[in-house]
Design a protein around this nucleic acid. Structure first.
Lengths: 226, 226
DNA sequence: CAATGAAATATTGGATACGATCGTACAAGT
DNA sequence: ACTTGTACGATCGTATCCAATATTTCATTG
């Protein structure tokens, strides 16, 4: 019999835990853009060695959350307005395309999953926790696209999203924007449920474009302010 | 002062070297899909420790060349026909879009760079080294898109390409396909030089779509053969 | 003889220790 | 005072060693 202190069903590697930890800090805004991440500090903080920290940082670099320069450590990657345009333009191409593919293949179960994600998002608005809201927002998008059965494109989208995610929180925060996003989600889902690929795609595209415009203008104000 | 294009004298880290080494083996076909990569074997082969090998594998996983499963090691990722469709569909969205952006911003120097890349590709055909040809093929595509100033999208494209690259070698090898690709490259460049964004985009899209169709049908034959 | 289960082995994951590199402070020279 | 060279400290990169886990082998049993 093994001595399972806790790994009953969940067998997680330390590297993965550290990666989640750091990613949460970045996305949550605790580590702002440009912040230098010291391996030893993280290692001491979590009571682990530097090796898993290094490997976690490598993964995060692949996701675009940090930038590693040789012998100079990892820095939380900052987003310029140009970067945001870059990222969102790619999303604007991929998401409408994928949602069409998804509608062509989806089952009733998939529709139910998307509805559930929509309801979760809706329920979270009243609580108003930005991190949770951001997570559920993306969960809804993911639920819409999942039936497309395009794991590679989904992986790409994941990195595109997480690279801009923490800046989106600013946009999501105002209550007006939240309710606007919720209404858009509802409209998208309504068309989705009816398997209206063209309309769903159009609405989704507009939804993403609106978010893009909002975040870009915010970033530009921020850059001008500096 | 303009950005220093490239540090000509770059200190290479062992991890990066190992990553290049393994990537070359995979792309070159020495490690076929499904092949298990043993860290210690690589380490002994190169006379280094296992640490840089592990970190190199992490990077390669981010590029989609290998898949790592906990405590089970890394295996060279294999490509199904569905995967290929997935990857190429994403490329089909991004490349035509980016080339339009590129044409809108490009300088005469950028055109010269693309022409140079085209000539290099042309010159390599007579030598017929598949690896080199594949590299130069992608270099041409990259040269076309570089002026778009979209580093994030370019990074995405890089991973999309490298994931399918080694299978493209099969398609590129036959002489007829090579000359066909060359002619298409010439046509694309001709429109590019004239700053005809619509036509360039159209030709590029067709060029990628042809390659996609070729590789997908090959993969399907391969799967059927098994 | 097939199925099951437990040791043995192979391989990866992680910790500690050491060496290399970069940034900076400070001293010396012009 | 400004520049240049150098020593020091902080931090990262890598090697070596140990622990945890998956796979294989082989004995046992029905």
């Amino acid at each position: 019999m093994p001595p399972p202190a806790k790994p009953l069903l969940q067998r997680q590697t330390v590297t993965a835990m550290v990666a989640e930890y750091i990613a949460a800090k970045i996305i949550g805004g605790d580590y702002p853009g440009g912040h230098q991440i010291r391996q030893e500090a993280i290692a001491a903080e979590l009571g682990v060695s530097r090796i898993p920290v290094r490997e976690a940082l490598l993964q995060l670099e692949a996701e675009g959350l940090v930038v590693i320069r040789t012998h100079r450590g990892a820095v939380v990657s900052d987003l310029s307005a140009d970067d945001a345009i870059d990222l969102f333009d790619a999303r604007l191409l991929l998401e409408p395309f994928l949602v069409k593919k998804a509608i062509a293949r989806m089952s009733n179960q998939d529709i139910a999953n998307a509805e559930r994600a929509l309801q979760d998002y809706e329920a979270a608005i009243s609580r108003g926790d930005p991190k949770e809201l951001s997570r559920l927002n993306w969960a809804f998008h993911t639920a819409l696209l999942e039936p497309s059965m395009r794991p590679r494109s989904m992986a790409v989208l994941q990195t595109l999203y997480s690279s801009a995610d923490r800046y989106l929180r600013l946009q999501i925060e105002p209550l007006k924007a939240q309710t606007k996003a919720l209404q858009e989600h509802r409209d998208i889902f309504a068309a989705y449920r009816l398997r209206d690929a063209v309309e769903t795609s159009r609405l989704l595209k507009k939804h993403v474009a609106d978010a893009a415009e909002e975040i870009v203008s915010q970033l530009k104000r921020g850059e001008a302010a500096v």
